[in-house]
């Protein structure tokens, strides 16, 4: 990081922040913006089948309805 001001802001933020781990060691920050230029939703689930499962794909945001019109 080159900007000193930014470094200080980050430090201040880190100090004030309540420590929290990341689920799975990973947390996506910009799904919406990244998806906007890629047509579809980059969220892991764009499902067209099945039911609710105890094992769900990551970041599922899907609604009811099939892909088949």
């Amino acid at each position: 990081m080159k900007s000193k001001r930014l470094k200080m802001a980050l430090q201040k933020f880190s100090e004030a922040r309540i420590e929290g781990g990341l689920e799975d060691g990973f947390e996506v920050m910009n799904l919406d913006e990244a998806s906007s230029t890629r047509g579809g939703n980059l969220a892991g689930c764009t499902c067209n089948n099945g039911s609710n499962y105890t094992t769900k794909p990551p970041d599922c945001t899907c609604n009811n309805g099939s892909n088949y019109a």
């Binding site: 764009t46 609710n52 899907c62």
Partner: peptide
């Protein structure tokens, strides 16, 4: 609605379940 214990049919996840 997105929680894994929801009873609502949300039309998905079967492929992921199959992967698992």
């Amino acid at each position: 609605a997105a929680s894994s214990n929801s009873n609502k049919f949300d039309n998905g996840h079967i492929f992921y379940a199959l992967l698992e």
